[in-house]
Amino acid sequence: MDHQVLAEPKPLVEIHNLGFSRGEHVIFDDISLSIPRGKVTAIMGPSGIGKTTLLKLMGGQLTPDIGHVLFDGVDVHKCRREELFTLRKRMSMLFQSGALFTDMNVFDNVAFALREHSGLPEEIIKRIVLMKLEAVGLRGTANMMPNELSGGMQRRAALARAIALEPEMVMYDEPFAGQDPISMGVLVKLIRELSAALQLTSVVISHDVQEVLSIADYVYVMADKRVIAQGTPAELKASDMAQLKQFIGGEPDGPVPFHFPAEDYQKELIG
């Protein structure tokens, strides 16, 4: 879509000094990162760190307390509603639960955004939808309802829906969470292949270390309200930062303690 990609390697999304809190609870404290065009960027971190919140900030669903999110040079949070909607047609999000519309079948789900925005005749929409469904291997489920699909298939159908309008960027929210190894493998393959085939900029948010490291071009690791490490998968694996090693190696104790802070054990038991 954008022919300047090669000439000018300006990142598609830039986040500058972002701060966000819910009530008293600070979630992000001064985060800066950038998402390069046409690459798979992963954001990793333990659960409960607000990774989904970060995606919602990028999509303009939440407004940060301080800092900016620039999408292709436009400040997402300074747009008026119509401009924001125009931006959102260029991005797309795969939600953790799939978020398929439960009251329509798979075909209508994928066709939904096309019918709303493209203004194409129904006959062409039908072809596009079938092509997208074929790409995720679910053409046979077109007439099924979402609740008849398995969790992994729902996520694939949602992926077909996310790429229906041919966006520039797809944000994946925990695409591998709760999947069996086969579905996980299928999703990894799909994300990698679709990103390459459609020149997509992909943002993957996950805590499944091995899968993420296998598909990402660049990785940000978040902990404790900020970005603690970044680099290519190889760089991260070679790093000797203790916190990073614990996270990538999945060790139960380390800088992130096994025990929730409590009073002295002996004192509390004996009194």
Partner: peptide, 18 residues
């Protein structure tokens, strides 16, 4: 409520549909 908790409402938002 179910639409909200299964992120269908957010999903509409992200599809630029109010």
């Amino acid at each position: 409520g179910l639409m909200k908790s299964t992120e269908q409402l957010s999903s509409l938002e992200m599809m630029a549909i109010d």
